[in-house]
């Protein structure tokens, strides 16, 4: 087959992904789900949350890249995906600026 033209490249949704890629991603998602469940039975102390979040982010990334075809899409689609993630970070980040600093105000001794 000849090289895809620019036109074909820009229409990512028409890209045909081999079935084995889908099955591989599905298997990876299942393994990661099992890992989440297993890890839940092990007490990692302060690492509990970071580990669970890392697994969840990996899974979401796999879904976005392969099942949602972002890996094969044009630049504009990628820009919008990154913008979505950026806005999620802004939302969580600035919300945390409230929660992380609530304890900073010293309460007068008599009030405690």
């Amino acid at each position: 087959m000849s090289e895809p033209t620019h036109h074909e490249k820009s229409h990512g949704s028409q890209h045909i992904v081999p079935l084995k890629v889908y099955f591989a991603v599905f298997a990876a998602l299942m393994v990661l789900t099992a890992t989440t469940v297993c890890v839940a039975y092990v007490n990692l102390d302060w690492l509990n949350l970071p580990v669970a979040l890392a697994i969840a982010i990996t899974k979401a990334t796999l879904v976005i890249l392969f099942f949602m075809h972002v890996k094969y899409s044009g630049h504009m689609v990628k820009v919008y995906v990154v913008a979505g993630v950026l806005f999620l970070i802004i939302m969580i980040g600035i919300t945390l600026s409230d929660y992380m600093t609530r304890g900073w105000i010293s309460v007068p001794r008599g009030w405690q």
């Binding site: 802004i90 600035i94 600026s97 409230d98 600093t101 105000i105």
Partner: peptide
């Protein structure tokens, strides 16, 4: 517009430092 929402929370118990940023 996405960075200013906390000005609705100035008297809701939001941290004063977050209030300053907003």
């Amino acid at each position: 517009s996405f960075l200013v929402w906390g000005h609705h929370l100035f008297v809701s118990g939001q941290s004063i430092y977050a209030g300053l940023v907003f």
